[in-house]
């Protein structure tokens, strides 16, 4: 065994040394030979738990690999014009079920980013301001219920938010803005914003409250006002956590399916207008996978879109994770 080094404690070693150090004294109710049996059981249990964990890891790896594998034949096969090249070359249309299928995913990418951007533009200022209020300005009694209330918003299933936007909000928005299409990019963006607000709020509020009280006390003692302290001391100190909140909110918005499926209008237009219907990548998969032939070109393209979603959200999650670790390193000196 290697020396312990600077690690002060390792549960595994302590565990085994404790086993070896079991004194020969037996409790009254334990039968002779019990110890041996218990040790055997312990070893079997450890192996079982270990293999369960490995099975879980295997499944995770399988998901990573499988979704991509189903899309992979696109690289060398060409069934009905479905190739990776076709997904990015003109014509810029998504018409998978026509005489000559057109599989360009750029309208879907554009639609996804358009809707996500609107959602972020709406959600970010609201959620960050509310987080600042809750963490810095609200009286403690109000704080007790504001946070759970906003977290309840996170608990609303996305299909319910989509339903509300479809039945109620879309008509209001149309009446206010006079849209030609009742369901369009802005409606979808607002609906998506509702789903993203609690995520950005919760993570950034956690980051703000994690800032040690001494920061605030030092700032206030130097004569700064509460607002100055919040904006110029606490907020910058919590910056990595805020960045994590934005990145994770963005990731959630990109992959969210039911809201955009219900309220985006689902037309794959190649347009920048906010008042046009859009179709996102997730909604495309959701609405087309049900009718697709197993193993066909269209099927593979849908898996290709799934792989794109997977990769984009993975990168965002990884970034969010890193930001959060930076925050902890910054505030507490260790990751």
């Amino acid at each position: 065994m290697k020396p312990l080094g600077n690690r002060d404690f390792d549960s595994r070693r302590t565990g085994s040394s404790a086993d070896e150090a079991v004194p020969p004294v037996r409790k009254r109710h334990s039968a002779p030979g019990n110890l041996k049996w218990r040790r055997l059981l312990d070893r079997i249990a450890e192996k079982t738990i270990f293999s369960f964990a490995m099975a879980a890891i295997a499944i995770i790896v399988l998901i990573f690999v499988y979704v991509g594998r189903e899309a992979l034949p696109l690289l060398w096969e060409n069934s009905e014009g479905a190739t990776v090249a076709a997904t990015f070359s003109p014509p810029f249309t998504w018409q998978p079920v026509s005489g000559v299928p057109k599989y360009n995913v750029l309208p879907l990418l554009l639609g996804t980013f358009k809707v996500t951007l609107i959602a972020m533009l709406i959600a970010t200022p609201l959620a960050l301001a509310a987080a600042l209020f809750t963490a810095e300005f609200a009286p403690p009694a109000a704080r007790e219920w504001i946070k759970p209330a906003i977290e309840l918003l996170a608990g609303i299933p996305s299909v319910v938010i989509g339903f509300f936007v479809l039945i109620v909000l879309a008509s209001w928005l149309q009446a206010v803005f006079g849209f030609d299409f009742r369901l369009n990019a802005l409606t979808a963006g607002i609906g998506l914003g509702l789903a993203v607000i609690p995520i950005i709020y919760t993570i950034s509020e956690d980051a703000l409250t994690a800032v040690p009280r001494s920061y605030r006390e030092a700032s206030l003692a130097l004569g700064a006002s509460k607002t100055q302290t919040a904006v110029q001391v606490v907020f910058p100190a919590a910056m990595p956590g805020i960045a994590a909140a934005l990145v994770l909110g963005f990731g959630r918005a990109i992959g969210e399916t039911m809201i955009v499926l219900l309220v985006s209008g689902n037309a794959a237009t190649f347009s920048l207008s906010l008042a046009d219907p859009v179709r996102t990548m997730s909604a495309t998969v959701a609405s087309e996978l049900g009718e697709v032939v197993f193993g066909s070109g269209h099927y593979r393209i849908l898996f290709f879109i799934g792989t794109l979603l997977f990769l984009i959200t993975s990168v965002l999650n990884w970034l969010g994770d890193r930001f959060n670790r930076n925050l902890r390193a910054r505030l507490f000196g260790s990751a």
């Binding site: 998969v285 799934g306 990884w318 994770d321």
Partner: peptide
């Protein structure tokens, strides 16, 4: 890291899988 990531993967991808 993989599990953290999996928690953030869109549910539609699980549907595909």
């Amino acid at each position: 890291m993989a599990i953290n990531n999996l928690a953030g993967v869109p549910s539609i991808v699980f549907g595909l899988f």
